[in-house]
Design a protein around this nucleic acid. Structure first.
Lengths: 360, 360
DNA sequence: ATCAGCAAGCGATACGTATAACCATCGGCG
DNA sequence: CGCCGATGGTTATACGTATCGCTTGCTGAT
C-alpha cells in the first residue's frame, strides 16, 4: 500500500481541524458545538452554518475524555452491577432493572455505559488499580447484592454522583437510593396473616442480613404490633450459612405452635425450595397445615409453586433511579436523596387460615 | 460549619498535589504511578516510597479522562441498534444478542456503551446533526432489521471500525459482519422436505427482501437443485405489504399441487399466524395436508405451534461480532472480514410426508 | 586533570475541550 | 464628531496526565 493512501486509520478530527476548515477559531467551533437554547451563542448564522458543514464533512465527534477533563458533562450515565449481569442464571433477576434504566436513559437523551470490564470472573470492582472507572460518566446507577462497602464509601468520599437501587447505608454519609419499601410490604403481609387468624408467625431471616433483611424484620415487628399482638410475639430464626431449612427445624416450629412462616427470599430460591421439601418430609401440607409467604419475589422464573409473596417494581426502580440521578446532576450541589416504591402483594396459593389441615 | 471543614466539595488530589507533598516533580509522580514490571522507572527506592506515601495519605486516584485524553483508545465498545431494544415486544428478539455481546466484551476487558439517546421514538440514527455519535467508542457492533444504508456507507467512508450482526452489503465497499448461514440452513431444510417426498415446495418471501431474504432464496434454489429437482421447480410467492397469507392464496396453491411451504419469518410472526389461520379456514390440517416450515425462528416466545424451523445462534453471533471487532481494532489496518455461523435445525411438528391427510 | 557514561529527576509539551476576558467593527445618537 | 452599546468574533488559559529529552551530579577510566 502506498503511504498516505486512503484507508489508513486517520486521527479523529478535532475542533482545531474544524476551525481550520471553516476559517474560524477553535473557540468559535466550541461555541457552535455547545450551543443550547438557554445559552445561545452570539454568532452569525453564516458562521454557524460553516462550522456545522465542517462538522458534517469531517465527521467530527466531541471527545468525551477531553470534555469531561474540563469538568463538563458528556451525557453518559453508567450502570454498574456488583455481580455479572448476563450469566444465564442471573439475567432473569437483573434484566427488569436494566429494562427500566435503559428506557429512562433513552428518554432523557443520555447514553448508557455498561461497566462489564472489571472482573468477568469473581466479584466486580469499581476501582481497578486505584482508578475509578465510573469517572468516565457523569454519574452512575449501582446495583447488586454483594456490595463492596469500602468502594461505596470511596465513591462518597470523592463525591461521585450515584444512585443505588436498593437501600444501602454507608457509615457517616448519606447515600442516594431508590428502593422497594420492604418495611410496609412486610408489615402488610404480616397483618394479613393475623387477620386470617394466625397468632404464632415465624420470621426466617437470611444468614447475612443486609439492609433489606433488616427492613423486613422491622416490617415484621411493626406488623405484629399494629395487629395488637405486640412485639413480644416475634419469633425469629436466622438461617445457617447453607441457607436451608430442614425437616427437624420445621417439626420443632410446628410443635411450638407456629402456623405461618414469612421468609427472606434467597437469591437461588433455596429457602422456598427447602421449606417445601421439609414440609413434604414431615407430612405437612402447605397451606393447609402451614402457611408460607416470601418477603419478595423469587428470581428464578421456573419456581415450582405459586408462592404468596410481593413483587418488587423492578423496571420502575430502574427508571426512578435514573431520574433521581439526573436530578442530582442538574442540582449540581445536590443533597443525597432517598425514594421508596411500593411493592405489589401477590395473593398466591401458600397462605390460608390456620388449622385447616386438622379440620379436614 | 467552619470553612475548610470536611463535607464541602473538595477537588480530588492531582499528581501536582502529590508532587508538592513528596517534594518532587509531577513528572516523577507520573512515573511512579505508571510503573510496570516491563517498563520500570529509573527512580531511587526512597523517592518511590515518598510518592507512594503521598498517594496513600491524600487518597489519590488517577483521573481516567485525562489519561485517555493522552492515548486515543478508550477501551469502550459501542452497541447500536436501529430499533429500540427494550420495548417489551422487541426485547425477546434483541436480548440474546445483547447477552453474547456483553459477555464477550466483559471477557476482553472492555466496557460497553449502549446508544439509546437517539430516537426514543421513531427510527434511530447514528448521525445526529451530521455528527457520528459512535465515535466516542473505539468501535461498534451494529444490529437491526431496518438499516439506514446511507448511514452505513457514511461509516465505511469515514473508516469507523464496526461489525454488523447479520449480512449487510454496501455498494462499493466491504463491510465486516457476523451472520447466520441462511443459505445452508435453508438448503438443508428444503433437502429434507424433498427426501420426505415433497415435489412442489413453495417459497413465501417477505415483501421487502433484504439480504437475509435473498440468502434464503438462494438456499431454497440450491436445495432444489441439490435434490435433483432442478431450479425450474422453484415456486416463489412474494407477500403483499400486509405480510399476510389469505385462505384463497392457500387454496390456489394446494390446488396447484403444492404440498409444502417454506416461509420467511416476519418480525411479528404474522406469516406463521396467517398461514395457520388460512389453513384452518380452508379445512386443511398442518402437517397432514400441508407441511409448513419457517426459515428462522419466531421472535415471540408466545408462539402457538411448535414450528419446524431453524434457530439462529444469537448469543454466539454477538460474541463473534465482538471478537471480530477487537481483531479489527488490534490489526489497526484491518481488512473487512465476514463470518458465517451455522443454524440449528429444529424438527418441530409442522412437517410430514405429503399426502398423509388423504390416506387418513 | 579530563571526560565518557550512567543514574536520578526535572522541564516542557501535547492531548482536545470549554470559557472568561478581551478586542474590533459598526450603526445610532446626542 | 466622539462616545456607546451591541454584535461577532478571537486570544489565552485551565483541566490532569504521560513522555521525550535535557540537566545535574557522580563514578571510574584514561
Amino acid at each position: 500500500m502506498s503511504d498516505g493512501a486512503p484507508g489508513r486509520r486517520r486521527r479523529p478530527p478535532t475542533q482545531i481541524d474544524l476551525a481550520r476548515r471553516a476559517g474560524v477559531s477553535q473557540a468559535t467551533v466550541s461555541q457552535v458545538i455547545n450551543e443550547t437554547p438557554d445559552r445561545p451563542a452570539r454568532l452569525s448564522p453564516e458562521t454557524r452554518a460553516r462550522v456545522l458543514d465542517a462538522v458534517r464533512e469531517l465527521g467530527y465527534r466531541v471527545n468525551p475524555a477531553a470534555r469531561s477533563l474540563k469538568g463538563a458533562r458528556n451525557r453518559l450515565l453508567g450502570l454498574f452491577t456488583f455481580e455479572a449481569v448476563f450469566p444465564t442464571d442471573q439475567r432473569d433477576f437483573y434484566f427488569p432493572f436494566l429494562l427500566g434504566v435503559e428506557e429512562e436513559v433513552a428518554e432523557q437523551g443520555y447514553d448508557l455505559v455498561l461497566f462489564s470490564s472489571a472482573g468477568a470472573s469473581g466479584p466486580r470492582r469499581i476501582y481497578v488499580d486505584g482508578v475509578n472507572r465510573l469517572k468516565l460518566t457523569d454519574g452512575a446507577v449501582l446495583l447488586g447484592r454483594h456490595v463492596r462497602r469500602t468502594e461505596l464509601s470511596e465513591l462518597v468520599k470523592e463525591d461521585f454522583p450515584f444512585v443505588f437501587i436498593g437501600r444501602r447505608e454507608v457509615p457517616g454519609a448519606r447515600v442516594s437510593y431508590v428502593a422497594p419499601d420492604y418495611v410496609s410490604a412486610t408489615r402488610d403481609l404480616v397483618r394479613r396473616l393475623v387477620e386470617l387468624g394466625h397468632r404464632r408467625i415465624l420470621f426466617v431471616k437470611a444468614y447475612q442480613g443486609a439492609e433489606p433483611t433488616r427492613d423486613r424484620e422491622r416490617g415484621y415487628r411493626r406488623g405484629l404490633k399494629d395487629s395488637g399482638l405486640g412485639v413480644e410475639a416475634a419469633i425469629v430464626h436466622r438461617l445457617p450459612s447453607s441457607g436451608v431449612v430442614t425437616a427437624p427445624d420445621l417439626g420443632a416450629w410446628v410443635r411450638d405452635g407456629v402456623t405461618a412462616i414469612v421468609a427472606d427470599p434467597s437469591e437461588d430460591d433455596s429457602v422456598a425450595a427447602s421449606i417445601e421439601a421439609a414440609a413434604a418430609e414431615t407430612g405437612l401440607s402447605v397451606p393447609d397445615d402451614l402457611s408460607v409467604a416470601l418477603l419478595g419475589d423469587p428470581s428464578r422464573t421456573e419456581t415450582t409453586r405459586d408462592w404468596t409473596r410481593f413483587d418488587l417494581p423492578r423496571p420502575e426502580l430502574g427508571r426512578q433511579a435514573v431520574r433521581l440521578l439526573i436530578q442530582l446532576l442538574e442540582a449540581d450541589e445536590g443533597e443525597a436523596r432517598q425514594v421508596l416504591l411500593d411493592c405489589t402483594q401477590i395473593p398466591g396459593g401458600t397462605v390460608a387460615e390456620p388449622g385447616r389441615g386438622r379440620r379436614r
